[in-house]
Design a binder for these strands. Structure first.
Lengths: 112, 112
DNA sequence: CGAAACCATAACCGTACAGTTATGGTTTCA
DNA sequence: TGAAACCATAACTGTACGGTTATGGTTTCG
């Protein structure tokens, strides 16, 4: 029946991904897998506290998870948290709606 | 071959849709179709200049088009402009990638 | 143990931004 | 023609936000 209605939880996702640095961090985690804050700091080209704050925002949107191991913290992307955004596009992106609907139908037949 | 690489044009879309009021306006235009600034102002619950500025941002992201008719300006949503965001999800939303890829393949067979 | 690495939080700063009122330019119409 | 409707822009304001340095808490290791 396709995604329904009121997801207030969509806002944190939209908000988090509006910042280029945050998008870059998420992209890097998606491509390279789990990363320490140190590694992400080198990649992002901003200070370590800045990266920590970005990770906090991403964490609130559930876009990343963290795992502490000794003195370092490993972050990894959690792409399932993109679902609200996908739902929104499904709902309001009229141009894509047909495609999504057909996809839904297809997938239901493919994976019961 | 699925969407490729560097779309700097994705940023304006992400940025524009990060604001709740702007999303609401876009959603309203998608649901109800073409609307005047006056109507959108009533709907949005903010001042008319605020709406005008939001529409300007949406316009820069190509998410809306406008058509002047006498003293009123009619705006309408342009959902195709969501493409960069869809591409981004396709690229970095690992969880959705398989689905999108299968969709691509399916659509190519369905609409040659 | 003591120093260094790793990370998070605090405190601060400049700017971008969403909102407001004020104003002016077109267009409609009585 | 003159007033009112419609819209965009200008000018201003407060706050949110992304960045920085400073600091402190764990953890590792020589």
């Amino acid at each position: 029946m396709v995604s329904c209605v009121k997801q207030a939880n969509a806002h944190p996702v939209f908000r988090a991904l509006a910042d280029p640095t945050r998008r870059a961090i998420f992209e890097e985690l998606t491509r390279q897998g789990e990363q320490t804050v140190h590694a992400l700091t080198e990649y992002a080209g901003v200070s370590q506290p800045a990266v920590s704050k970005h990770l906090t925002v991403l964490k609130r949107a559930k876009l990343v998870q963290h795992r502490r191991e000794g003195r370092e913290t490993h972050y990894r992307a959690q792409p399932e948290a993109l679902a609200p955004m996908v739902d929104w596009l499904n709902h309001y992106g009229a141009f894509w709606r047909d495609r999504f609907d057909r996809l839904e139908a297809l997938l239901e037949r493919m994976e019961p």
